[in-house]
């Protein structure tokens, strides 16, 4: 998908299907007691709206013959950076419970700064330590929020 036109045709089709899927899901909602407003009403209206707009978008883009604004995709390396960054966030969240917030924060910050700027690994470790400490002092101690503390602080 290089042009916005192609993207909008594809997006429109996807949304049309999504709309149909929501309509289908809405028709499966259990009704229970008789109420003035059925619990199916809103989801059905929205499903239909998404379907209709999706079709509209696809058709409109199909017929569009002007200059295309294009899409700014990243280059190959940029793409790799985005994916790895997302995976690091996912790992952060997954490790939060077993390792506790401070340690997970340290690992996440050190790893992602180190990944984005490998030649500054010293900065990475120091920043990791600082953020880990902030997470402990501010969020666990000061604000008294029930984040997992991990075995280090039990």
């Amino acid at each position: 998908m290089k042009t916005l036109r192609q993207a909008d045709i594809a997006g429109g089709c996807f949304l049309a299907f999504l709309g149909l899927f929501i309509l289908y899901a809405a028709s499966n909602i259990r009704l229970g007691v008789e109420r003035a407003l059925s619990p199916r009403f809103f989801p059905s209206v929205l499903g239909f709206l998404i379907f209709a707009c999706g079709v509209g978008l696809a058709v409109k883009s199909w017929r569009f013959r002007g200059e295309d604004p294009g899409i700014h995709w990243p280059d190959r390396q940029g793409f790799v950076i985005v994916v790895v960054s997302l995976l690091l966030i996912a790992a952060y969240n997954a490790l939060m419970k077993p390792l506790g917030l401070p340690l997970a924060t340290f690992l996440y910050a050190a790893a992602s700064i180190g990944f984005l700027k490998p030649e500054r690994w010293g900065v990475a470790i120091v920043s990791g330590l600082v953020l880990g400490a902030v997470s402990y002092v501010v969020f666990i101690r000061l604000l008294d929020l029930s984040f997992p503390m991990g075995f280090l602080f039990e």
């Binding site: 966030i89 917030l101 996440y108 910050a109 992602s112 984005l116 953020l131 997470s135 969020f139 984040f147």
Partner: peptide
Amino acid sequence: PFYILGPMIVFFSVLGTYS
């Protein structure tokens, strides 16, 4: 520098959302 700020943004976002 964004290589530091980016992870910091994620840090505060994750904490804010988790809480």
